[in-house]
Amino acid sequence: MLIPNVKQVNGIWSGNVTLDSWNNFFNKEMDIDLNIGGDKLIESLNSRHKFAYEYLVTNQEKLLQIILNALLVEYPIMQEEYGYEDEELDEYMPNVDNIQEFKEIMEPKRVYILDVENDGMAYLGFHFICSWDEDHDYGVMMHKERVVKMGGGDVAFLSWIAEEDKKASEIV
């Protein structure tokens, strides 16, 4: 098996992954859903998927820090966009001064290994449940240690986002 705890059901490769440093950060034991392919059905797993899985597990702490630090920068802008006021602000999208405070308002739901690769590495997507948007959640797409895009949960699994990023990097 290329990736442990993963199987194909109805054409979708899925399973779970335990990321110990994420469990430590969020102070809970979690088996995070794992999806391979994102919004694309793939027939079989290959070395690009295995390599991305190994990268995820090996760099889990660093990836979480990158995600949370990027969110810390973007979060005040998001607060303005969501427009919560007074009690709603305190309940759904409270002010955050450091990344530790995010564990009170979000938690990981799913990790995606997309079928799009760039420079030998598949894109990874991270989907979080969050208090500020219970309908759409929060998503991040990354390539290696670079945040490609942040937004609703769908950002984590949409292949076209990875494909656009790949094309843009080929132009440079």
Rank of each mutant, 00 (worst) to 15 (best):
P4C: 08
N5W: 09
K7V: 08
K7C: 05
Q8H: 01
T18D: 01
D20Q: 14
F25G: 02
F26W: 12
F26P: 12
N27Y: 09
L34W: 07
I36K: 00
I36F: 05
G38L: 06
G38P: 10
K40R: 14
L41F: 08
I42A: 11
L45P: 10
L45T: 12
L45N: 05
N46R: 11
K50C: 00
A52R: 07
Y53F: 15
Q60M: 03
L63V: 13
L63N: 07
L63W: 11
L64D: 03
L64T: 01
L64A: 08
Q65K: 15
A70Y: 01
E74C: 06
Y75P: 09
Y82K: 15
Y84A: 09
E85D: 09
E87A: 15
L89R: 14
E91Y: 14
P94S: 04
E104T: 06
M106S: 07
M106V: 10
E107R: 07
E107S: 14
I113D: 04
L114Y: 08
E117V: 12
E117P: 03
D119R: 10
G120F: 08
A122F: 07
Y123N: 11
Y123L: 06
S131M: 02
S131H: 07
D133G: 12
D133E: 10
D135M: 10
H136N: 15
D137Y: 02
Y138C: 14
V140K: 07
M142H: 10
H143N: 07
H143F: 02
E145K: 14
V148N: 03
K149N: 03
M150F: 04
G152P: 01
D154Q: 07
V155Y: 00
W160C: 11
E164I: 04
D165F: 06
K166P: 00
I171N: 04
